[in-house]
Design a protein around this nucleic acid. Structure first.
Lengths: 124, 124
DNA sequence: CGGTATCCTGTGGGATACTG
DNA sequence: CAGTATCCCACAGGATACCG
């Protein structure tokens, strides 16, 4: 694909395109939150809405559809008198949890580091 | 991406918010690619531009600034005759690599699963 | 309860041109 | 080479209203 301008500075980097595709699984501002909220077990639509900060019904619905299509979660509909729907992570979807956790861990350390080091911290 | 808590609509669970904050470290469409491209060692501005699909100079510049401010990478400027700048992951930034890798692994499996599963859904 | 449809806005990001 | 400035647009996402 793209020609690299490398000279003598390190081995061949992997294809970023692939990363982008995979990152797309958790794209959308709330997708990680949805996955995270489902880590303890199945939850219903409105439970997710109240779990997750102020996510709009439209967006939650959209994320759930996408994640379902991607095989990250499954949807169980119960046609009871009050309609209820449960969403649950698939085994594959659950595998994302360690990854998210890893990101959280690093995020924490980055925040701590910034608090501890009085060096140049350029604010945006 | 901006997280606006516009209205107070109820209890805010701690976990998802934290997740969102930490996810913000790798927010922006190209941030993960930048981190990934630097995983093998320091690289220069235009090397990154050609490494990463078609990222515009403006956006690459913006991501690099953000990631630098967040402590994920450092910038080394060399005032040589042809100016050159190198970007390199900090140790903390490097800790994001396993997380990204984990996401990539799951992303792969999800793609395989969709190819193999007979009940293959239509992607968007 | 569990959504969908419509409208609207903010902002991430591309293209281009320009600077040091 | 390594950016910055400007303009512009697409689209994610919020609010509201409405349906099954």
């Amino acid at each position: 694909m793209v020609l690299k301008l490398r000279k003598n500075r390190g081995p061949e980097p992997p294809q970023p395109c692939m990363l982008t595709e995979c990152m797309a699984v958790i794209s959308g501002a709330w997708a990680p939150n949805v996955i995270w909220s489902l880590r303890a077990g199945p939850r219903r639509f409105n439970e997710l809405r109240t779990d997750i900060p102020p996510i709009s019904a439209k967006v939650l619905s959209a994320r759930l559809s996408e994640l379902e299509a991607k095989g990250v979660l499954v949807r169980h509909v119960r046609r009871t008198s009050p309609p209820s729907t449960e969403y649950e992570l698939t085994p594959l979807g659950a595998e994302l949890l360690p990854a998210l956790d890893a990101i959280v861990q690093v995020g924490h350390r980055l925040k701590e580091r910034k608090l501890n080091s009085p060096e140049k911290q350029v604010a945006e």
